[in-house]
Write a protein that binds this DNA or RNA. Structure first.
Lengths: 204, 204
DNA sequence: CTCGACATGGGACCCAAGGCCAATTTCCGC
DNA sequence: GCGGAAATTGGCCTTGGGTCCCATGTCGAG
């Protein structure tokens, strides 16, 4: 449906699996990127493309969990689904705790894998939207002068202009000026909106 | 250290396990509540006691995952650790996804179990603190009159007194009265504090 | 040196918020 | 029906927030 179909990165050292899954996912409408190793995946991986990763646990070089760790370092974290033949419980627990969307075992039902991928893509979309909002926020923050940022903090903390002025050692009039320009640059009309903006940004 | 030591609920149909773990956890300073079945556990379970639950997967009657589901329905959700002999990967994935703190397999290292319990107790403590704050908030909300609640919503939304008055079809003066009493009852001095209070309450 | 961004404020003015005092109406429970 | 809580509104005054115009001073880039 979207103009840019989501990409599923397949990472497995078994060529047969790679071919079979590529066919399955391709016919499901996904763009597929098959890789035989973590290194190969990292080389062709574009964090800006929406999609998810389906990883085997056993890989030459860096293993699946290690790759998941690398991926988690980036933002927005690419959603990961594990698909492995010889997984054990500790590995599955570790993977899910580290944020994996699912942990499946071979052989896998096509419907199961597709459902997991669908869920992962939902996660990815939401993560991207959140990241986009956070970027916009960071940008607006960057346009503030140091003084305006200080005033922002105090306003969000619920301080009065008079108190802020006393804290900063300036006239109340001046804080009004900074405050007004800050509200303008942040694109909000009310303290309520400002607080929501800031807490949403710093929270998740 | 705390005057009321946290309780660890042990649910396992193997008497030997129950005895052995009771001894281990008792000597670690925990209060222990051994149960042979989900039903027995639910009967002696007091949600108000701080602590966590260590569940086997296979139980007579309701199984571990079912029990976890029941527990999740309550608030604050009692933290659950699974400890099982014949667990499989899908069960472990399901358990962790459903919020289990950990999923361990028998035989378990004492240090592993104790670490998991320690983590679970941290979760429990934080959940209790959050629930306590939410209760306090709900109580304050309950003390508001219907009108005050309406005004609360509009104020948090950043509306002006004049707009609120127009929306409610009343005089601006009246909204000021409601607003003042609402701020008083909510125990906040500024709109910023109010917004934080409300969003923290409705968020997590 | 000049320009622009930043910080600083004074004066005037307007609107918003809130406190104080007083009043009416409505509805509920005893 | 009476007491009381809730909702409603008025007037009056103070404080707070926000805007406009204007002015000064610093500092770094060009």
């Amino acid at each position: 449906m979207p103009p840019v179909p989501p990409t599923v990165y397949l990472v497995d050292d078994d060529k047969g699996i790679l071919v079979a899954l590529s066919r399955l996912l391709g016919s499901a409408g996904y763009s597929v990127e098959p890789c035989a190793s973590a290194e190969e995946f990292l080389a062709c991986h574009d964090p800006d493309v929406p999609g998810c990763a389906v990883l085997d646990l056993q890989l030459p070089g860096m293993d699946g969990l290690g790759l998941q760790g690398s991926l988690a370092g980036e933002a927005p974290g690419r959603p990961v689904i594990f698909l492995t033949g010889r997984g054990d419980i500790p590995a599955s627990v570790k993977a899910i705790k580290a944020g994996a969307v699912d942990f499946l075992t071979k052989p896998v039902e096509a419907s199961t894998l597709l459902a997991a991928i669908s869920a992962a893509l939902v996660h990815d979309l939401q993560a991207r939207q959140g990241a986009s909002q956070r970027r916009a926020m960071t940008e607006r923050l960057a346009n503030l002068t140091p003084r305006e940022r200080e005033v922002l903090g105090q306003v969000v903390a619920g301080r009065r202009n008079k108190q802020i002025a006393a804290d900063l050692g300036i006239a109340e009039k001046t804080t009004k000026v900074h405050r007004g320009r800050m509200m303008e640059k942040m694109g909000v009309q009310s303290v309520a909106d400002l607080v929501r903006l800031v807490t949403v940004h710093n929270g998740p």
